[in-house]
């Protein structure tokens, strides 16, 4: 049974490896410098770029049957839904998270609950 899969040339694998190392160095250097609000987005952008490189070349998604890419895309979409819906709750709770006694009105003794 002769069948051939795409064999990724050593040259391409090596280039990807070197780029991944370079991006690691860049993310360390940029994190050591205070870029204010840009710190987190930049680190996440670099990490995402590295992940995409690994997925496309090392995991050969670029050369594969596209149904594998579809599976990954669906997974990523569900992660985004998970994150977005969770934040839609946790970021809009108003004063619910504030539990300091000075701010929270004490529960009346007669209510049957222990006041904090």
């Amino acid at each position: 049974m002769a069948h051939s899969h795409h064999i990724i040339p050593i040259r391409i694998l090596t280039v990807v490896f070197v780029v991944l190392l370079a991006l690691t160095v860049i993310t360390v250097i940029t994190a050591r410098i205070d870029l204010g609000v840009l710190n987190v987005p930049l680190a996440l952008t670099i990490a995402t770029s590295k992940a995409i490189l690994v997925a496309l070349i090392f995991m050969a998604l670029k050369y594969d049957n596209k149904v594998n890419l579809l599976a990954v895309a669906l997974g990523v979409i569900f992660v985004v839904v998970f994150l977005a819906l969770t934040f839609a709750d946790t970021e809009f709770r108003g004063s619910m998270g504030i539990t300091e006694p000075a701010i929270v009105e004490p529960v009346p003794e007669s209510s049957g609950y222990d006041s904090p």
Binding site: T27, V28, A31, V40, A43, A47, K50, A51, A55, F58
Partner: peptide, 21 residues
């Protein structure tokens, strides 16, 4: 190989999130 690359990808995110930023 696929499994191992995924383990690598998870770490690619863990490293900046936990150690750097």
């Amino acid at each position: 190989g696929l499994y191992w690359h995924l383990v690598d990808i998870i770490w690619i995110f863990l490293f900046p999130l936990l150690y750097l930023i």
